[in-house]
Simulated scan of single mutants.
Amino acid sequence: MARQVVERTMSVIGHNVNVMGPDGVILASGQDDRIGTVHEGALLAAQQDRVVEIAHSDALALRGVQPGINLPLRCHGQLVGVVGITGDPVQVRVLGDLIRVTAELMVDQAQAAESRQWRYREREEFVGHAAAGRLAPRELTEWAAGLGIDLEVPRRATVVAPAARTSEHAEALRALQRDLVQVRGVLVGRVEPQELVVFTPTGRSRGAHEDLTALLRGAEGRLRHATGRAFSGRTAFEHAYLTARDTLAVSGLVGADGGAYDFDDVPLLALARGMGEGWRGDLLAEPWRRLVAADRSGELVATFGAYIQHHASATAAAGALHVHRNTIRYRLARIGEITGLRMDHLPDVLMLYLGPVLGSDH
């Protein structure tokens, strides 16, 4: 910042400018050999908090000093340094207040930018911890209040991940995070290193989600993303994140394709994924695992996917796969033989439908 003050002001006034810290040490100067030395005139200006003019005769008696004028610099009322202009005090006095005001404006802007960046980082940290469920209720409430985050505002989460493990796709995720800084109303964080979770308010504040959607559309093909259900209250961040995360995890199963998904597209699979851990999930997943192990060509899995996607209609599934309806019936019978399930019995079909997302290895 000191260098920027020197460069910008010297380009206008045609005189050497020095910027010193409160201890009188020259931080930046148009005369490089003076950087790091102590300017006794600046030290006096800082200690006494006043303008110090140095004539030619005074310069001979002080260390590290040339004729000129030195003015205290303040940021929000606090003395932070000194700015000096080299030259005959009579000639440069008229420039003093102008240079000081310019320098103070630059310092104020830099401090405001740093404050915004710090606040953004703290919000990012809060979002990551809240989404992961790592905060106790009191800690969550107090931290949110300190950041000005209203927990009663309904929010939904969108989890975004690279579509492939390449540097290009990873850069697309970083670019999205940079662009989101400019979107009003969003809260951004990370639970997993390679995923971004973005919270947007619902109801009257739909603009934030629309802006997010537009940014994601611009990264089509490079990013995958899924949006969960909206929640409010102390558990809102965690629940909204989990529904989005599980939606993204299951969206490619049983016939889904593309790069953008919504919880309402696959609600049963998304909820089942979160409940399928442990031996119960393993037991429910056994028929699906048997089918995958026996179906080396993938033909039966594809047939079941088409059957589900077309609402258990053998005729519609046959049309989608460009085969005869009897072929579909034969394959469904074969699926029944392998899994021990009946494809004309809804509970059995449902059990196989849930198979890909249940069990400890999914």
Rank of each mutant, 00 (worst) to 15 (best):
A161P: 06
A144D: 01
A136I: 00
V160W: 01
Q66P: 00
L196N: 02
P162H: 07
V197T: 10
V186W: 00
P201Q: 01
W143Q: 12
W143K: 01
E104I: 00
L79V: 07
Q177A: 14
R119E: 15
G84Y: 03
P162M: 02
G189P: 05
F199E: 02
R134C: 08
P89L: 11
V183Q: 02
R119D: 10
P137H: 05
R178M: 13
R121K: 11
R156E: 14
I85L: 10
G133M: 01
L105M: 11
V82P: 05
I85Y: 08
I85R: 08
A163Q: 11
V160I: 12
A132V: 09
L105V: 06
G81P: 07
G77M: 10
V191I: 13
L98A: 15
V197F: 09
I99L: 13
V188F: 03
G68F: 09
P162G: 06
R74K: 15
G133W: 04
Q66V: 14
R116Y: 06
P137T: 06
V198N: 10
T202D: 10
A161V: 13
D150P: 01
V198S: 07
E168N: 06
D108A: 14
Q78D: 09
A172C: 07
I149R: 00
V186T: 11
Q182A: 15
L176V: 03
A113V: 09
G133P: 02
L187M: 13
V80K: 02
A145Q: 11
I99D: 02
A172W: 03
A132F: 03
G185Q: 06
T86I: 15
I69S: 07
T102M: 13
V127C: 04
F199K: 07
G96Y: 06
L196G: 05
V83L: 12
V80I: 15
V65Y: 09
T158N: 07
V188L: 11
G133R: 02
S115K: 14
R63I: 11
P72D: 03
V107G: 04
A131N: 11
T86C: 11
A164H: 08
T202K: 06
P154C: 06
A172D: 08
F199W: 09
T86Q: 15
T102R: 10
P201D: 02
H169Q: 12
D179W: 04
F126N: 04
D88I: 09
P67S: 13
P201F: 06
P201K: 05
D150I: 01
L71C: 11
A130I: 06
G64V: 00
Q78M: 12
L180K: 05
A172L: 08
R190Q: 12
G148K: 04
L73F: 05
R138S: 12
V92P: 00
G148L: 05
